[in-house]
Structure formats: structure tokens, C-alpha cells
Design a protein around this nucleic acid. Structure first.
Length: 854
RNA sequence: GGGCACGUAGAUCAGCGGAAGAUCGCUGCUUUCGCAAAGCAGAGGUCGGGGGUUCAAAUCCCCCCGUGUCCA
């Protein structure tokens, strides 16, 4: 990055000078006389015991100070976004305030909710998990305070100069930091294909803020300026609070009384971990994460299980729920939604605690058994075993050590060795462009006016072609709904040509025709949307909202939509839930949702200012994933369910007709999928099921009502006949056995051994059974010849200690080109097709006689 | 999303190429006025499903399904 990028007029106006850090070598700007930048590790903390700000403040006051400062300077305050970044598929969590506005706002597709804006966004960074409680300043969840400005060529808000000036004014005039104590270090920021200069703000050894200026796009071969530049700042609320108080660690300053309370029972590190995790969990669970074994759920599980282990190791430890509640109450002062559903949160946490207890129980028996076996063989449990147990069974190493008689030492680098085991695994979580494969629409093409939003019933319309290429057509206005929000595309016709697909790209709707477009730009075309298809899609979409509402009502507010699909045949919704749905719960959901259908409630779709809508309806609006615009399209089922949604909906619930659940499955830990249909399809489905029932009852010859008992009877009969067949075969074999034993030409006694030699017309499995019967008593040898698939089979069974079956068999192999083997108790061989067994039997008998000591 | 482990009797698991096992639970008998307990006897298994290798597969290989767990 060219050094002129950092040469701001503000620095010159205010009298800054540029230096190079004698430790890290980076260039920085300062008013003071520093030979190094004022951040760790280049210098030590200088504020412990000597706060760097003039007034000590807790996090609530500090946040308010920050937000208010920027509000007074023309910024609009924006509420936090969820900590789970459902609107992105490349990350699980909101890891910075700018994530709220990626990709749509930063790409220019959608205007920001306000410009400039100020926000305090709770963000999660699991990278720092191991550092929590150790460094004194790391958190898994922290609040990133930020002011953002989005500059378009025609509308410049502010950029580097003003940003830096605001930051400096905040630190010095508002918070009372010594102006000469601050350094602005020059850095380069790069991420998501964008890059730009950034300034890292150091004060008394602490990096308190980063000012990032997204300015360029990195292409394959070059760096180009972005059409839209973005001011992306990040001020750590926790660090500001800490700076203002100068306590020993950030935890004391940030968590105050809750931390002190835990310190009465726990050492500093454990106390910090517990309160940090409790805070992160409150946000995660409130925002709809259910603990599970993959994706975002795993992080919730990790935090919970880490906390539980600490509590288990500590005598007289407080209850986990009590710690969560204390943290939750503190958060709720600012974010009331976090405190709103304690009971439900308790249920989710308790369910997870139970699962963990079960897992630990299993672990204990596994370890004990393994230990015993090893002790019997003189082996010892190794470090490698500990790693393997943790990785594949989830056994914490400290727990394993508790259970073992001679435990190995837990290696200091245990967790990095676990990580090493996972090296080379390539997660495929790349951000996938949904508009991939679509052609680029010429810049300057007017945006498509989308008419389906407010009027889903009009299906025929006239419009003008504003752009076209190959089979793609963009119109100035359209009623065609493009694939999106889980609802599949409309179909229909433009003129005489079929529309096979409709997709949205930025501000345009692209109609994909069956053939290259014959239309010219400016031409007027007539559009017709396939009515029955659209109607079914609408019914399925509205049904999805109703079901989501009914599920939340029935199962609890931890239920969030984790995915959905609305097709013309059926629809499905994936919800977060911590256990399988019982039949009774399903029944209740289905009844409730159809009750709502019958009540014929109005379904209203309208646009509303984002902040206002959030205030009225809360965070659960974002079931399908937040669209970060200034205005939200709200779909409101009166008195029942409200969601931000771009889909086409019925205007009254009765239009949905009926909702029939057809399938429920657990698609992954913590996620349940319900499949259903509504309207015509629901009726079709019911008819189909009825037909199946009738057909089944006809075939079984009983009434529909008697089907279950009829099936039971049938199953009973099958079982009985199977048993009878088995008994008959046994009797048969028993008779054969008696016959053989009674025949002096086949049964002979040699010393203490009785040898039975015979040929029967049976296969391998039956020879074995027969041998079993013949050698029930000790000291017997059975040599049996049979046939299977045209090949001779020779079976030898022995309960005589003197006669080894395998030896006997081996002596006979050559006589019938047999291949096989066995052990002292039993041996089998199969010969080539057509090879006679007579000689083999003789050979085997001779061998058995010899072994028996004749 | 990926790695690893695990699916065997109603339950918990052992067996890891040669004749499907243990413990608890269940049924019956003995003992008892009866119960518990004990002893004896017995029932209960397509060894998750499907392919392959082999004379022979619960066991080895491949694919699927399910569960657990770790990592992102």
C-alpha cells in the first residue's frame, strides 16, 4: 500500500508526525514523542492501575457514550444483528460489525439501513477460545462498536480523513485520553476479495480500535478501485471499558459483580471462562442456536461442555443455570430479547447437559473396560489413546485420567495435537455466489420494478424489455417471482416463449427463456405467469410461515427456521430443536396450524423501516436470514407469526386450504425437518393415503379400522410358521442323527472316541447342524459328506480332545480336490464340481481312527 | 462441511476369518403360607442394510443408512 494512502490532511492539521516503530518497524502517526507504536507487544500495558480515560465506566455506560457521541455527529443508531450470520453461507457467526452488511450492502445491491451509521455488534471469535481467562483480554464474544459509512461516486459521506478525526475526538475530547499517548499505526487490511489501508489505534499498550478503509478490489491480475468505498471501523467495547477502569484484567471491568461472585468459588481463569461462556451462550441460544455436533451448534456445545467440566471439578460449584441467568440478566439491560425466554433456554441447556452426562457415562465404561483388558495383557494406556478417545469418543483427557489406574500424563500440547490430527482436512465452506453462471447485465440498465411483492394475484402484465442477451431478458417491471427465500421460480410465458427459470441478480430480475430471446430492447412484451403453479407455491410459502409459528408456539422459542424449501409438489422446513418430535407434539402442531388456517386470519405483506419493525416484532423476524436493507418486507399473519420475507403469500390463511404433514426426520443433530403439503396437494396427499389404506385393507380382507390388529395377526402367523419350519428341520435332522448313530456301519467306537461317518443329501449349513447333534456328547467325531450347488461338501466336527477336526479334513482334501480348513472343533471343505466324495470319506475316517488311537 | 469411532439377544457389551457368547432382564421348574433371594432349565439373534473378496465373513474391502464424537 502506497504511503500516501495514510498521509491524511487531519494528521497535518492536528500536528501529527510520522515515525517508524523501533520494535515492529511499522510506520505510525502520533502527537507524542514515541519511538515505538503504543500497542502490545511493542510496549507494556501502561493503564493498569492508571486508567487511560478520565472516567471509569461499565460496559453499558461506555456503549452509550460511544453510540451517543456518533449520534451527535450525524450517525444513525442501528440495533445489533443476530450473532448467527444466517444471511451468509461462508461463515457461521457474525465476526465483525461489517458482516452485518456483507455482501449486499458492501456490494451496492442494497442500500444500508442508515448512512452513516453507528452500532455496537456482539461478535464471536472462537479463535480466541483457549486465550480466554489466560491473556486477561480475550473473549469468545465481545461487542464491536463501530461507525460505518458507505460512499458511492454520487454520494460521498466521509472517508479516511473524517473517520480518523472522529476517532481521535472520541478518544481525547470525549473520553479524556492523553492526545500524545495515541498512535495510529499504518497497516493493510484484506479480506473477501477487497483490500485497503487501515489504521490500528494504540493507547498505553492496548489496541483499542482499528479503522479500515475498503477501497480496492483484488482481481486475478490487478488491484482496481471499488465503485463503492466503505468505512469499516471496530472499537472494542471491552477494551474501552477496561481502559477506563485500569483493572488487572478486562474481565473485572467488563463483568463486574458477576465476575466477583464467581471468584469467591473459582480461581481467576475458571471464573473468567465461566462468565465469558455464559455471556456467549446467552446470545447464541437467544439467536436460535441449539447445541449439536456440527456447524454453529457445535460451538454452543463446546462452550456448554467446557463450562460443565469446570463446574464438575469444583466442589460446591454453583448451578450452571444460575450462572447463565446472572449473565443473561446483565445482558438484558441492553438487549432485552436475551432475557426474554429463560424457561426455554433452561430446557435447551438441561437437555444438552443430560446428553453430556450420558456421553460421560459411556466414556467411563469404555475407559474402564479398556483399562482392565490392558491390565490383563500387561499393556499401558498411552498419550495416543487419550488423543484417540477425545477425538472419537469425546472423552475429556482429565476425565480419562481420573478413571485410569495408571494414567499417562496429559501432554501440555494436548489440544494442539488434537488439531494436528485434523490437519489436511479441507472444509468446503466457500462462499457460493447464487448468481453464478448468470450473464452480467449492462451497467446503466434500469432496475426491475418487482410487482409480485405487493400484489401476488396479478398474473398477466405488459412490460418493456430493457436488456437482453441470449435466452435472458430483463424487463422494466415484472410479476414473475425469481428463485429466492426457499421459494422456487415462477414459470409462464413472455409473448409466445416459455419462461423456464427466473433469477434475481442485484437490482434486476432475469427471465430465462426456452430459446434465445427474439425481443429487442424497448419492445413491449406481454407476460403471463403460470397460475396454478404460482398458487401452489404461495400456499406452500404461507403454510411454511404458519407451521413455523405453530412450532415455536408448541415447542418453544428456541425453534428457529434453519432452512426451507417451497416447491410445487411439497414443502419442507428445517427447524432447530434438541430432540425428536413426539407423535403427540406433531399431532398438536398439525391441529394448531390447521386451526389457524380455518380461522381465516389476514396475512399482510408490507414494507417497513427496519428499526421500527425490529422494535415492534423483535428478532424472530429473521427466520429466513436477515436482509440488511433500510426497509424490510414484512409478512404478518395477524396475531400469530411475523417474518421478514420476500416471497409471494396468500392474503388470508384460509387460502392455504389445509396443511398435511407427510414426514418428519432428524436431518442432523439439533435440526428436525418437516415435510408437508398444502392446498390441492394436501388434499391429493390425503386421498392418496386413503387409497393406500383401502387397498391394504382389501388385500388383508379386514376393514380399515382393523388394519393394525390385522397386521399384528399376520406378523404373528409369519413368525409362527417360521418357527414351525425351524422345528421341523430340527426334528428332521434329529431323526437323521439318530439313524446314523444307530447304524453300526457308520458309528464306530475307537478307544474313548465315537466316530460317525456318513453321507447325507444336505448343504453346508445343515451338515454343521447335524454335526452339532451328533457330537453333543464329549468324545465324538462327526465326518459328514453332503452336497451344495453341485459341489461336494465335507464337514468334520469333533468334541474329542484327541481328534482335531482340521487335521482329519486335511487328510481327505486330496481325494476330492477340496479346498478348506478349520480348527480342532470344526472344519469344512468344498470340492470341485463332480468330484466324488467316497474316497474322501474313507480317508477322513482313517485319519480320525489314527488320531483316536486305534 | 470434513476426520475418527461405533451399530451383535429386551438392556449393557464381549467376540474381530473357521460350529453366534457373557451379564442383567424375561419365562418355567425347585424351595416358600406368600414375596424376595438362591439353584436348575428354557425362550429370545436375517450380528444396521446392500454389494464384493474367500472353500468359509459378525469378523476383511466398497457403498448406503443410523448413532456418537472431534475439527472448521
Amino acid at each position: 500500500m502506497d504511503s500516501s494512502e495514510y498521509d491524511l490532511p487531519f494528521f497535518h492539521r492536528a500536528g501529527f508526525h510520522r515515525r517508524a516503530c523501533s520494535v515492529c518497524g511499522s510506520a505510525f502517526w502520533t502527537l507524542g514523542d514515541h519511538d515505538r507504536c503504543q500497542e502490545a507487544p511493542c510496549r507494556d500495558y501502561g493503564f493498569l492501575g492508571h486508567p487511560g480515560f478520565s472516567k471509569p465506566e461499565g460496559p453499558d455506560a461506555m456503549r452509550e457514550t460511544f453510540l451517543h457521541f456518533f449520534e451527535e455527529r450525524g450517525h444513525t443508531r442501528v440495533r445489533r444483528y443476530p450473532t448467527v450470520a444466517r444471511w451468509r453461507n461462508d461463515v457461521f457467526f457474525t465476526q465483525a460489525s461489517i458482516y452485518d452488511f456483507q455482501p449486499w450492502v458492501t456490494s451496492g445491491a442494497i442500500p444500508p439501513p442508515a448512512n452513516p451509521l453507528v452500532i455496537s455488534q456482539p461478535v464471536l471469535r472462537f479463535i480466541d477460545l483457549e486465550e480466554v481467562g489466560r491473556s486477561g483480554r480475550h473473549f469468545t464474544l465481545f461487542e464491536m462498536m463501530a461507525h460505518h459509512a458507505f460512499n458511492r461516486p454520487d454520494h460521498e459521506v466521509y472517508f479516511k480523513d473524517r473517520t480518523t478525526e472522529l476517532c481521535h475526538e472520541l478518544l481525547t475530547e470525549q473520553l479524556g485520553a492523553d492526545p500524545t499517548a495515541i498512535t495510529y499505526k499504518e497497516e493493510v487490511w484484506e479480506g473477501g476479495g477487497n483490500l485497503g489501508p487501515s489504521l490500528s489505534v494504540g493507547l498505553l499498550g492496548l489496541e483499542v480500535a482499528t479503522l479500515v478503509f475498503m477501497e480496492y478490489v483484488r482481481d486475478v491480475d490487478a488491484v482496481r478501485p471499488m465503485p463503492l468505498t466503505v468505512v469499516d471501523t471496530g472499537y472494542g467495547l471491552e477494551r474501552f471499558t477496561w481502559m477506563s477502569q485500569g483493572t488487572k484484567t478486562a474481565y473485572e471491568a467488563v463483568f463486574g459483580a458477576e465476575y466477583d461472585e464467581l471468584r469467591r468459588t473459582f480461581p481467576p481463569r475458571e471464573a473468567a471462562i465461566l462468565i465469558d461462556h455464559a455471556r456467549a451462550l446467552n446470545f447464541l441460544l437467544t439467536d436460535g442456536v441449539v447445541p449439536s455436533n456440527s456447524k454453529e451448534g457445535y460451538f454452543a456445545r463446546l462452550l456448554l461442555r467446557r463450562s460443565i467440566r469446570i463446574l464438575q471439578r469444583t466442589p460446591e460449584a454453583p448451578d450452571l443455570l444460575a450462572i447463565l441467568d446472572a449473565a443473561g440478566r446483565a445482558i438484558a439491560r441492553t438487549f432485552p430479547e436475551v432475557g426474554a425466554h429463560r424457561d426455554d433456554l433452561h430446557r435447551v441447556v438441561s437437555a444438552e447437559a443430560e446428553k453430556f452426562a450420558e456421553s460421560i457415562d459411556r466414556a467411563r465404561t469404555t475407559i474402564r473396560r479398556y483399562d482392565e483388558r490392558l491390565r490383563a495383557t500387561g499393556g499401558k494406556v498411552t498419550e495416543e489413546d487419550l488423543l484417540q478417545w477425545y477425538d472419537s469418543l469425546g472423552i475429556p483427557p482429565d476425565l480419562a485420567v481420573e478413571e485410569l489406574r495408571e494414567p499417562p500424563k496429559i501432554p501440555d500440547d494436548f489440544y494442539s495435537r488434537v488439531a494436528a490430527r485434523h490437519e489436511g482436512e479441507r472444509p468446503t465452506n466457500e462462499y457460493t455466489e447464487t448468481t453464478k453462471g448468470l450473464p452480467d447485465v449492462a451497467t446503466g440498465t434500469p432496475a426491475t420494478e418487482v410487482l409480485y411483492y405487493l400484489d401476488p394475484y396479478t398474473l398477466a402484465f405488459d412490460a418493456h424489455v430493457v436488456w437482453t442477451e441470449g435466452p435472458y431478458v430483463v424487463l422494466d417491471r415484472t410479476y414473475f417471482y425469481p428463485t429466492g427465500g426457499g421459494q422456487v421460480t415462477d414459470k409462464g410465458h413472455l409473448g409466445d416463449l416459455a419462461v423456464v427459470d427466473v433469477e434475481r441478480k442485484g437490482p434486476w430480475v432475469l427471465h430465462h427463456l426456452e430459446r434465445p430471446s427474439p425481443f429487442r430492447v424497448g419492445e413491449r412484451v406481454h407476460g403471463r405467469v403460470d397460475g396454478p403453479r404460482r398458487r401452489q407455491l404461495m400456499q406452500h410459502h404461507t403454510a411454511t410461515h404458519l407451521l413455523n409459528g405453530a412450532l415455536r408456539e408448541t415447542l418453544g422459542p428456541h425453534v428457529w427456521q434453519a432452512g426451507a424449501y417451497k416447491g410445487p409438489e411439497s414443502a419442507r422446513i428445517d427447524i432447530t430443536h434438541y430432540k425428536p418430535l413426539s407423535r403427540e407434539e406433531l399431532h398438536r402442531v398439525e391441529r394448531r396450524v390447521n386451526e389457524i388456517v380455518r380461522e381465516d386470519r389476514p396475512v399482510k405483506s408490507y414494507f417497513e423501516d427496519r428499526n421500527q419493525a425490529e422494535k415492534r416484532f423483535g428478532f424472530t423476524l429473521y427466520q429466513g436470514g436477515a436482509v440488511p436493507g433500510k426497509e424490510l418486507r414484512i409478512v404478518e399473519v395477524e396475531g400469530f407469526d411475523v417474518e421478514a420475507c420476500g416471497g409471494t403469500h396468500c392474503t388470508h390463511t384460509s387460502e392455504v386450504g389445509a396443511i398435511a404433514l407427510s414426514d418428519v426426520e432428524r436431518i442432523q443433530d439439533g435440526i428436525v425437518r418437516l415435510t408437508y403439503s398444502s392446498g390441492e396437494r394436501a388434499l391429493d396427499l390425503r386421498e392418496e393415503h386413503e387409497e393406500i389404506l383401502k387397498e391394504a385393507s382389501r388385500r388383508l380382507g379386514v376393514s380399515v379400522a382393523e388394519l393394525p390388529s390385522g397386521i399384528d395377526r399376520l406378523l404373528g402367523e409369519i413368525e409362527a410358521s417360521r418357527k414351525a419350519a425351524r422345528t421341523r428341520r430340527k426334528e428332521d435332522l434329529g431323526a437323521t442323527a439318530s439313524r446314523l448313530l444307530a447304524d453300526p456301519s457308520v458309528a464306530e467306537t475307537v478307544g474313548a472316541t465315537m466316530i460317525v461317518t456318513g453321507a447325507v443329501d444336505r448343504g453346508r449349513a445343515e451338515l454343521m447342524e447335524l454335526s452339532r447333534l451328533l457330537t453333543k456328547e464329549k468324545g465324538r467325531v462327526a465326518i459328514l459328506a453332503g452336497e451344495e450347488d453341485g459341489r461336494g461338501v465335507l464337514f468334520v466336527g469333533s468334541t474329542s480332545p484327541a481328534v482335531a477336526a482340521a487335521d482329519v479334513l486335511r487328510a481327505a482334501l486330496g481325494e476330492f480336490e477340496g479346498r478348506g480348513g478349520g480348527n480342532p472343533a470344526s472344519a469344512t471343505a468344498v470340492g470341485e464340481p463332480g468330484a466324488p466324495l467316497a474316497h474322501a470319506l474313507d480317508a477322513a475316517r482313517s485319519a480320525a481312527r489314527r488320531a483316536a488311537g486305534a
